[in-house]
Design a protein around this nucleic acid. Structure first.
Lengths: 345, 345
DNA sequence: TACTCTTGCTAAATCGTGTTAGTAAAACGT
DNA sequence: ACGTTTTACTAACACGATTTAGCAAGAGTA
């Protein structure tokens, strides 16, 4: 295990100063170095297997070239969400295209304050993307006020923090409307998560708006809250199926949660969509692979990740954002679980 | 946006030296500081919202406290694998428990040399975990020889690099044996990926060994290679179903790939397990949620991530590894897709 | 010859911390 | 009263790069 060589070693062996080595390797322009010297430095650098130390470089440039992706969930929960991988793919692509690295930080909600703020305050990263912001997040407002580069994945009202989000209200409305159009009058709801998450609250709102626009009463007893996981969906659906009269359809605001709900339905020996119609949310990759394939709202998961990373990198570079907030459109994907084809045939 | 304050600012305001500030904040023992001074420093530090700069700290300690997780796949492919999230959860847990951060680096196979070696050569990270090593990876051997801390997730023969792996051969053998026990004589195989990946080659080997132990001939025409994705499984199965006589059972060495294969089977109007029995591999979370639930080989995904991170952190700390390689056991999970309950009833 | 301009480089400051070696002042022992 | 130990700190170096300011030698010009 040879010791690492530094720019000083290269300089010494090439018979030049450290400054010259730096000029040559970074191709600084406006600086004249003779071709022979340049070549000699390059040769020696290769010969010594020289690689500039990233830490030292950060020190002097003030940039880490790292962006942090913060998930406000425990690792287990965070990674159980089938929606996440596609987002990561988008993030990763956008980041590496601009020379940034990606650091992933799942922070359980019960982690004390400072769990993720240290990431930015101690300069581990140049900026962060915060997924699933909560209404009650005080730390977030604080670091934003301190001038940190932050982009939210998901909306936070009453805060002028740049964000990328999907049209949760619109999507939920479309999903619910779809069930109404199919003739359902009694439609249950399982949210994706606790309503302290803005995405959750928005989907609930969309559901409600669709009902009211159709002159249907909003009935709180038909609503249960998910917790991002299939298991939560299973529990919620088990409860909802015991209500009489039983709802004839459900809007489940997360495909991942819907998977668990589907299990509960099967255990009750009910058929989808014949006995119970289902519409999900997210269009995770497996939604079209399960049986019955899930009617759902497609979100641009990849675009969400990509867009957030793009925006953050602009922010870090002090560029003016032409759009401080982006809301991506959703799309209804009709498959078997909602029973649409049964009605139309 | 106030300017960041440094230890020097704290020192000046508290009327002490920078050294004292460092001693107080790091609680260095063996150093005596009067209670009043200590308190004054702490107060001022809080008042100035002082947070030590991680980069400067790295500079002097020589440690980044970051571990890199390198995936030898394009981001799309890497994150399409349903097995990954659980691994990430394990990695993330183990890393953060020891004060490490996690950097994720998906490297497409066609990326030039140096795509991931720079990560360690330029000291962005203290060590890396390399997922899915390939037989033909030259860079890997090189950085290992240079003394880099590396742990493989997956085995690489003829290299004394520490690794954590699951018993792919044994698992594949068990899976195939299960189908043989159920009376199948003509069993097809779809691998998880290209056989240049060691995991792939090992699963193929296990399949073969089980066949031969039962006196069944290995027939290459019954074997197709997956590519980590459902789509690859779909294509492969479509081909395999056209063989006559059609195999009565398939071992698909990845649940993710199996999902696509299931689609192809359904499109052919065949029933699982009645017409075709299926055994998967990985036991990804959704395997028990789909219809029919998938008989599969459970891998300790979380443990794989956790174990790799643990091992790497020991390696970084120059500890002697009591076990330079760990092979985790697998478990057969019998569900409906293999038709086991049909036979036994 | 003397002055200026260009070429090709170098010296030294800087980033913010950790840490070793050392040093005054106070307390203690005899 | 004088040497020794303890207390409570500080000065200065190191980490490895980037970058600004400047300098010596040779070329060009009057």
């Amino acid at each position: 295990m040879a010791k690492r060589s530094t720019a000083r070693d290269v300089a010494k062996l090439a018979g030049v100063s450290r400054t010259t080595v730096s000029f040559v390797l970074n191709k600084v322009d406006g600086i004249r170095i003779s071709p022979e010297t340049r070549q000699r430095v390059l040769d020696i650098a290769r010969q010594l297997n020289y690689h500039p130390d990233a830490t030292a470089r950060r020190m002097v440039t003030g940039r880490t070239k790292v962006i942090g992706f913060v998930l406000r969930q425990s690792p287990d929960q965070a990674f159980a969400d089938h929606f996440l991988p596609q987002v990561l793919a988008g993030l990763s692509h956008a980041a590496s295209a601009q020379g940034y690295h990606l650091m992933i930080e799942p922070i359980p909600p019960d982690a004390g304050s400072g769990a993720y703020t240290r990431l930015i305050r101690e300069r581990h990263v140049d900026g962060i993307i915060l997924s699933g912001p909560r209404f009650d997040d005080q730390d977030l407002l604080r670091i934003h006020a301190e001038g940190a580069s932050v982009v939210l994945m998901g909306r936070l009202p009453n805060a002028d923090i740049p964000f990328v989000d999907v049209d949760n209200v619109g999507g939920a409305q479309t999903a619910t409307q779809h069930l109404i159009d199919l003739g359902h009058r009694r439609i249950g709801l399982i949210t994706n998560a606790d309503p302290a998450y803005t995405a959750s609250a928005d989907r609930l709102l969309g559901y409600r708006q669709a009902l009211e626009a159709a002159g249907l009463a909003f009935d709180p007893t038909l609503v249960r809250y998910g917790d991002f996981t299939p298991n939560g969906g299973n529990v919620a659906m088990t409860h909802l199926l015991q209500i009489t009269p039983r709802p004839t359809a459900f809007f489940i605001a997360s495909d991942t949660v819907a998977l668990g709900a589907l299990q509960a339905i099967r255990r009750s020996n009910l058929r989808v969509p014949d006995d119970v119609a289902l519409v999900g949310f997210d269009d995770v990759p497996l939604s079209e692979l399960i049986d019955p394939p899930l009617t759902t709202i497609r979100l641009p998961a990849y675009g969400l990740g990509w867009g957030a990373a793009e925006m953050l990198i602009r922010l870090i570079g002090k560029e003016e954002l032409q759009q401080p907030s982006v809301i991506l459109e959703t799309e209804l994907i009709v498959r078997k679980s909602s029973g649409a084809d049964l009605k139309s045939h």
